[in-house]
Design a protein around this nucleic acid. Sequence first.
DNA 1: CAACAATATTGAAACGTTTCAATACTATCG
DNA 2: CGATAGTATTGAAACGTTTCAATATTGTTG
Lengths: 335, 335
Amino acid sequence: MAKVSMREVADRAGVSVGTVSHVVNGSSKVAEATARKVNEAIEELGFVRNAAARQLRSGHSNSLGLVVLDTSNPFFASVAHGARQACDEAGLALLIGDSGTDEQREGKYLDLFAEQRVNGLLVTPTGSDLSRLESIASRGTPVMLVDRDSNGYALSSVTVDNIAGGRMALDHIIAGGCIRPVFIGGPQSLPQVADRLAGAAERAHQSGLDLPVYSTPELTILAGRDAGEKVVGLPADRRPDAVFCANDLLAVGFMQAVIMFSDLRIPDDIAILGYDDIDYAFSTIVPLTSVRQPAAMVGRTAVETLLQENASASGDHHDRRFTPELVVRGSTRPV
Amino acid sequence: MAKVSMREVADRAGVSVGTVSHVVNGSSKVAEATARKVNEAIEELGFVRNAAARQLRSGHSNSLGLVVLDTSNPFFASVAHGARQACDEAGLALLIGDSGTDEQREGKYLDLFAEQRVNGLLVTPTGSDLSRLESIASRGTPVMLVDRDSNGYALSSVTVDNIAGGRMALDHIIAGGCIRPVFIGGPQSLPQVADRLAGAAERAHQSGLDLPVYSTPELTILAGRDAGEKVVGLPADRRPDAVFCANDLLAVGFMQAVIMFSDLRIPDDIAILGYDDIDYAFSTIVPLTSVRQPAAMVGRTAVETLLQENASASGDHHDRRFTPELVVRGSTRPV
DNA sequence: CAACAATATTGAAACGTTTCAATACTATCG
DNA sequence: CGATAGTATTGAAACGTTTCAATATTGTTG
């Protein structure tokens, strides 16, 4: 392992440790000739500075921690991508944790990041109790909720309006003439899911329609396929004519089930509407109508806002909310 | 920020710093009563141990570094997922870098990870010169190539046989009766792309066929769509009847272009074959025939092999190679 | 109860930086 | 040439752990 320290570089170059540090960091003017000697010594010995020591001394880590629900979900992948770019620009490292909607794992990553003394935390929490995050924030580590409302807690947040998204979805379904919509999604404990449902249910009821819910254990293609199998097996008079899925993965899976296990035509017999507008939505068997979220923008904004709040040190919190956008494709009936 | 150190915990609990350390790490037997006092003090003061100090003292970081070409590519997302699981099981943190096939960025992450004193490095290199990695490895940090041959360099690797995959693809295309195949992919400097092409070209030539190449700047849906636009615009007598895409994203994009900009029928007028078998391949407009790679397994194996080699400390290298598998769906003509 | 073993606890050194006051140089000017 | 003002360099003190030899506290035994 790289066992060479500044001490050895200093000896080799015939200068003091302090000077080496100054050369390495440009923290103070060093004479041309001295700098050259030091750089040669560094080169020859293969010196690599030790992040742990540097960080211990300086007190912080130049890094941010991000905890998301599922990195293999393209929505969060995009969020992470946007956050990463913003971090790169700010010269910060980004540590990423994947909680898998498991509070334990989420906690494990929060511990890890706390020990790492990250400059800030971006979190999409799994549970409803945000008091731990609040106390972390009150102890001085800025915390930014990602895709989750602060909702009373003293925390900042960057969100996309899920209720509005749910409304858009149902409005579109109703405008297309569907009269037996269902909602597919879960776990219901996720506010993202609950809010999309709330918005959708509101509109359904306003139009005098019912909106039955098929709960799924997770937001994956597989879960969507399972739900789809059940739904297409229903007798025709109880079968929905439109499904609003809590995300695109579910919608993709649902569509697979419709194709494989039934002769139903999309959208004529059954319309399918997703959420997120992932890249693949455009390419599905029947191109998917979806509610688009500015995912990368969410990640980027979360980082930037966090850094701003950090700089201003004023201690007040911001809630930045984006509005989603309906993207109509072939999987729903045109209005 | 968490400014409380073991010193303060020790004072509060009326014990020495050493004892606090033992309680925190279970590194030595501590009397029940003492442990309780210490834990109370920790609780009351909100002590969080400082990773930097601990790591500085102990000399390493309990972490692995992974650098991939593109985290938003589902193949690498799966690799990362597998690696992460294996790391979790081994109690290691996984730091992930995304080089975006940019040697500079790759280098930046290698620097970062070196400073972090990671226990090992998993890398899918962008360029062809692996001497830097070799020298890192020779200096004692285990390096594992991921999805990339060691090819003469003194490095271990976990790969999937791309040449074999290319052969499978063309064999299938030829068996389906196509006589004007093309290859779409790039940059050609990526060995993954070059090898898939090499295997494919070999089979094409064995059957007396030509295999023109449409080079793309990257392996994305967008690049595939661009390539598709060009190809479908060709006059019928020069238009291919089968395209083998270097990955599924290209294939997805290509398919989009075919649907949008032509009346060609898939697979009758033009067959499309992808590579990776990402989750979405199953759900495309016409379900995609693809060469499946055991991506998560690659990530997991890379971590496990690295840890084994690390433990045995014998300094010899292993090349683990998986064989891909053809998954036939509707986008190619059945044999 | 003395002597010893076993078990708990302590104290201080070391890890490799950064930082900053103090010192050593150089050049400039009157 | 002496004083002065910069400019370069140095030295040593932190930072918060872990580790380990040394010491203190028990418990056990003859």
